[in-house]
Design a protein around this nucleic acid. Sequence first.
DNA 1: TGTCCACTGGAACGTACGGCTT
DNA 2: AAGCCGTACGTTCCAGTGGACA
Length: 417
Amino acid sequence: MSGNDVLDEVFDHFTGQAIVFRDREVLRHDYVPGRLPHREEQIQRLGETVAPILRGERCSNIFIYGKTGTGKTAVTRHVLSRLEVKAKELNAPIRLCYVNCRMVVSEYRVLATMCQSVGLSVPFTGLSAGEVFDRFRAELDTSKVVFVVVLDETDALIKARGDNLLYELTRVNETMNRSKVTVIGISNDLRLKEFLDPRVLSSLSEEEMVFRPYNADELKNILLERARLSFNENVLSDAALSLCAALAAAEHGDARRALDLLRVAGEVAERRGACTVTEEHVREAEKHIEHNRVVEALRNLTLHSKLVTLSVYHLNGKAPQGAITGEIYEVYNELSGELGVTPLTQRRLGMLVNELDAMGILNAKVVSMGRYGRTKKIRLEVARTQIRDVFSDDSRLGLLVDYAPKCLSKQTRETNA
DNA sequence: TGTCCACTGGAACGTACGGCTT
DNA sequence: AAGCCGTACGTTCCAGTGGACA
């Protein structure tokens, strides 16, 4: 059979029978459903808080905490979109601006996005943040309007750049005559308060909301609701749905994760030509998602981070219980030499290890070896085969996957002696 | 009980780069 | 063209530290 025949078969199979999905878009993260089960209380509370805006008054700043997939963003978007509609009906002047600080990670870009939403275009770079802020304030104050800015994943911005922007935003109302600004901060990190200046904290948290994680039953209801819209009738087995809910509930009640599992399980079933989505498809989906996450993360690492990972890979081959920073630096130096790259300092390597730890590629734990100092014990957190697969495809690193570091054989000889 | 190792991790600073304003 | 600015990525310096060992 030629390549074209194979493809024809694949495509025919896919288009001929849309058995599984009715509308898979409903399962995507950015889909805002009409109803948000188990968040009625939060919707009402947020609604009550922002309602004064409809009378042209500024409402309290709001800070929303909760882990990923607890519905913070969905509730906020839902309430604000209704607010916007109502404001239009009543002719109340409002402007909404939504910024995801993980995507828009610098203070400057956040300001630029805010400028955009008041119809002010600013250059990509070249101005100081202060200048952009002044322009934003001046433009906003040319008319009487309530400006609501939602800073989603604020924790990302604050950890990277500090709370200067938030400080400015909370004080901006003092210097404007006509317009008013309200800030809605959303954070995945409940400990964010520790990073904030007390002055910022007090004015930002005029109103505080905490979103508890969903439990398995609640997740099941959410999934049921979405499944009705996204799957065809009688396709999804109850067992598969319950499993998605249970797996996501075990992982801090993340609805996003549950929806991902459901979508991918549907796709697995579709690919296999199955008529129903079963528990087995969900298990398969779980593996699939994790595998993709790791492969993507490994592929996108910088050269030095890849070299560090590879050094841990080589060391863990000899000592699975974990290698210490000094050893890793030695192997890393040798690998860099093989590639003809200037190695980074040990200090920098320490930071790269921390980053890899945060990404879940490595596991680093500070340990004290008493008389023999304090260091980090570092292990690979992903399967060795995954490292092999991804790095073997890399044009530069491919050769180093099977390379035997000289400093390692020396160490082994010493321990044997 | 004090010493001392092998680091950790904070802070300040350096450099290169793209891109704006004047 | 000069002077800034933000960003990314890195270096240098150094105080601090947990706990085995003498």
